[in-house]
Amino acid sequence: MTDTLELELENPLPIDTIIKGNCIEEMKKLPSNSFDVAIIDPPYNLSSGGNWSWDNSEKLAGFGGNWSKVMENWDNMPLIEYFNFCSAWISEVKRLVKPTGSFWIHGTYHNIGIINFILQLQNIEIINEIVWYKRNSFPNLSGRRLTASHETILWGHTGTAKKREYYFDYEKSKSLSFPEDNLKQAGKQMRTVWDVPNNKSKEELAYGKHPTQKPIRLIKRMLDISAKYGDTILVPFVGSGTDCVAAKMNGLHYVGFELEDKYIKIANERLKHCDNGLTLFDSVSEEN
């Protein structure tokens, strides 16, 4: 009981919890420099239908403001509103992730250019642009364009370009090999093109799924090279919980946010049934 109390006193975060709510508003409640890594899978703004309202009366750093979700569809906004939305959550990620930490942002051509631009406006350095090659992606049925077979992932940090303190396990990135990746070889440097099939195991879908769910092998690769055992991960858009599950499997803590009850239920079920690489007292015992 003493160890549990000590852990709670040392870490004011609601660790290992998925919080229902708007991530921008909820992140504002957390202390600065609280997280070691963030994994962000935001809406790509490529769906049709749905509305969000935006109150421009409040000016925040990074072009933020007051958001109010007024319809269930979360993936369609007017362009300027999407820009402001991304500016707001990026501003909070910048505040919350330590200078010694880093973050990963998923996207496609629909949104990644906007996010790249905002990162530069907020003086946030991009470490790498990752091309996630999806070998088994869905075919193009219209015959009017090339078959989309990749997504983009931006890896960045919240420190300065003059003092790059972010954690990167270079030796581990070299030693890792993946049987399904035809590009990465053990002992060779990890490149910025990752050959990761998009299919999920039965275990990943056992309790339900999300329309933009990422394979857990992709998220684990990010955490393998950018997070240390016992670190705390920020997940602004939880969805079905893949990022939190990968964190738990890697011996990491997490704090996540999600608006939809059905996805929170799926995520919590997945977390309840996945292997935990970290015990409650590891963070305390390693420091002592």
Score class of each variant (00 low, 15 high):
Ala88Arg: 09
Gly208Arg: 07
Lys214Gly: 11
Met71Asn: 08
Tyr207Thr: 07
Phe168Asn: 05
Leu280Ser: 11
Tyr109Ile: 06
Asn111Lys: 08
Leu141Gly: 03
Leu176Met: 15
Trp104Ile: 02
Ala267Gly: 09
Tyr207Met: 07
Thr160Phe: 01
Asn136Pro: 03
Pro43Met: 05
Gly256Leu: 08
Asp261Ser: 13
Phe85His: 11
Glu269His: 07
Val193Ser: 05
Tyr167Ile: 12
Glu25Tyr: 02
Ser149Met: 10
Glu25Ser: 06
Tyr82Thr: 00
Val196Ala: 05
Phe237Gln: 03
Tyr166Phe: 13
Ser91Lys: 04
Ala88Ser: 15
Tyr44Phe: 15
Ser32His: 14
Asp169Ile: 04
Gly62Val: 09
Arg270Lys: 15
Ile18Asp: 15
Ile80Lys: 14
Thr147Gln: 14
Gln213Pro: 09
Glu151Tyr: 06
Asp55Phe: 13
Ile105Trp: 08
Trp194Ser: 06
Met27Glu: 14
Lys134Thr: 09
Leu13Gln: 08
Ser87Asn: 09
Asn136Tyr: 03
Ala161Leu: 14
Ala186Met: 12
Gln189Asp: 09
Cys86Tyr: 02
Ala246Lys: 02
Leu5Val: 10
Leu234Ala: 01
Ser68Tyr: 00
His157Pro: 03
Ile112Asn: 04
Leu183Thr: 00
Asp282Arg: 14
Asn76Lys: 11
Phe83Trp: 12
Leu154His: 03
Tyr254Trp: 04
Val37Ser: 07
Lys214Trp: 11
Met71Gln: 12
Phe85Pro: 09
Ile80Gly: 05
Val131Cys: 13
Asp75Ser: 02
